[in-house]
Design a protein around this nucleic acid. Structure first.
Lengths: 359, 359
DNA sequence: TACGGTTCTGCAACCGTTACCGGAACGTCC
DNA sequence: GGACGTTCCGGTAACGGTTGCAGAACCGTA
């Protein structure tokens, strides 16, 4: 192994050179090396030459760790989300990572597995890692431990699709879930549905709450008599399945189901197929957060979509703004759009106001 | 702001306490605090008491940065992948992150956007960040700049579904793509297909190469006359679309298409729908890397699946083994399984004179 | 009492940088 | 020629920890 060190320098793992060695080789003080590398004006041309020559000869590269310790910033951002395997989250990370990378920051990623306790643990962990900021997609907006932890945080925070008490001073990148949901519900009512179910995730998150409220408001404002069914739970395939089963088991099942999340949709479709319920005929389906499945399914699934990559990018930009300028917390609201597709069709003929499946 | 510091300690962002302050409060030397916290045996019970009391009172938490600098390890792992928004990659990250987190490590994530140049840049960057190890899913196994960079790396490397020259001494977590692909091709031949196309990604990655080679081997070993078409390219929806178009435009289009990647499948299905080509009837389709779409599509898509989360976990475990014990590089091969589904059906009757099994 | 052996604690160096401060060298002007 | 201002550079104290080493205090024993 040791024969690899100080070899011809063309290959093989070499020990990293430190500033000290550069200084010795260039025969200058260590502080001068620092000045040259950080672009300080007080350096003469000849010295800069000598130092840079030594730097290239030794392939010196500054130690980020030491720099961070000294400068008091790490150029890293902590990112917490429930589950990276959710394509929605993955897109958000994709957008955020690219934007942050462009600004010289890197991303520390942790999954909370939808557990508020893990959220709190991770936040504390990021603190001791000295991240310069955090982007959070919390499992719950209401968990006391998490909120208490957040109050202790002394770096800028940006939440994605969440709303936090103002004293936490978090910026927020959110979607206007109400608009898309309202459009979807109005569409369903317009084509004739009178019994509409919403399967959604935790009401302790902004999307869960807003979608439910928006649907409720639309239905209340409507002159016709519409019968809503709300089934909040978790953003998981399991809840999608269980809720759908429960809906189909009712003596008067809904004629339309809105799935508030792509995992819920997967569970819902699985049960529909299992039971031989024909989507777009026996039951209409609307989903949120377009995934390939919604576009390519037969019939294509109507959905309430949004620019998820853009959401991540926006979150990163909000954080960068707090990091570079020291502005206060801001909130950016991005649109959602409802795209009607054949899965949202008129309900089957009613014969007696009872179970609609003609079989 | 300053009124928040040193307040009642119940909330608000406080300045972090340093070891110095803990030592002062407990009236011991700073080194004693360190010993207590790191579980050194040379500490008397009364001193431990005093120190721990001070620690809780000040809510002291050690600075990871300083510890890393001193100890020479950061407990962090760099992870490079092409694109986190690919569910396959996301699952890998999910598995790896959980395993690493369990061992106290955290994940630094960067997307390479399928650009080998970015791979090289990120690797260098991770070096200066002093990560303790790297997990890589490289855009190309053959890019000279990347390989040269990798030779300079002095921490353990694990590649996911890639193979590197032995002098780089990387561990590898790979799938046995050949087995699944061979089973799929044999199945297609058995049900009567004689013109089979493979749309796949870059041959500069292990899955791309292995899938192609496996198909070639099966066809050569076969007694019947089978006509293969290979369309390597990139793992993207665009390539999936373009390749499918090209296939369908042929005067004798293939009766079966194998998509070597979920993004390719999306592109392929999109074009099939666009052209009104009926999957499982006009053309059979097999895909790799099960996603919800393959299971729920009508007809369900036959696929060559694997445990992607397990792949990520395995990669993490391989890395941990190198970090804790200092064993040499190892390779772990995980299975792939072919699941026949209705999308892989016998070919339609031929009119062009070539043999066909009368279904 | 003198001695050796434990057990505990503090000092100080060090990890690799940055930034402040002071001083040397030089030029300029009266 | 002395006072003063620039320009450039080196020394050194941090940043917040860890750890080898030396020494103090205490014990038992001869």
């Amino acid at each position: 192994m040791s024969d690899m060190f100080g070899g011809d320098g063309s290959s093989g793992a070499r020990r990293r050179a430190s500033m000290r060695e550069v200084a010795d080789l260039a025969d200058v003080a260590i502080s001068s090396v620092s000045r040259v590398l950080s672009g300080h004006p007080d350096v003469s041309a000849p010295m800069r030459e000598r130092v840079l020559a030594a730097v290239t000869q030794l392939e010196y590269e500054p130690d980020f760790l030491a720099q961070s310790l000294r400068r008091g910033m790490t150029l890293s951002v902590g990112f917490i989300l429930a589950d990276i395997s959710n394509p929605l989250m993955a897109d958000i990370v994709l957008g955020a990572e690219a934007a942050l990378r462009g600004a010289g920051y890197s991303l520390l990623l942790m999954n909370s597995e939808n557990d508020p306790l893990l959220d709190a643990t991770h936040i504390r962990f990021f603190q001791s890692r000295r991240v310069d900021g955090m982007i959070l997609s919390l499992a719950s907006e209401q968990d006391p431990a998490t909120l208490e932890m957040l109050r202790q945080v002394d770096v800028p925070i940006v939440v994605v699709d969440r709303r936090l008490p103002p004293e936490i001073r978090a910026s927020a990148a959110v979607n206007d879930h109400a608009a898309g949901m309202a459009a979807a519900v109005r569409h369903l009512i317009a084509v004739g549905h009178r019994r509409i179910a919403l399967i959604t995730g935790s009401v302790e998150t902004l999307p869960g709450r807003e979608r439910m409220n928006a649907m409720r408001r639309v239905i209340e404002a409507q002159s016709e008599q519409v019968d809503p069914i709300y089934l909040p739970g978790s953003f998981s395939e399991e809840h999608g399945e269980a809720a759908t089963r429960q809906l189909l088991d009712r003596s008067f099942p809904p004629t339309a189901i809105i799935c508030g999340g792509n995992q819920l949709l997967v569970g819902c479709l699985r049960v529909c197929q299992e039971r031989g319920v024909e989507v777009g005929a026996d039951v209409s389906i609307v989903s949120t957060d377009d995934i390939p499945l919604s576009e390519l399914y037969q019939p294509p699934i109507a959905s309430i979509a949004r620019d998820t990559v853009g959401l991540g990018r926006t979150a990163a930009e909000l954080l960068l703004r707090r990091l570079t300028q020291d502005s206060g917390p801001e909130t950016v609201v991005l649109p959602t759009v409802f795209t009607p597709r054949p899965s949202a069709a008129p309900p089957p003929e009613r014969r007696d106001g009872s179970p609609s499946r003609a079989g």
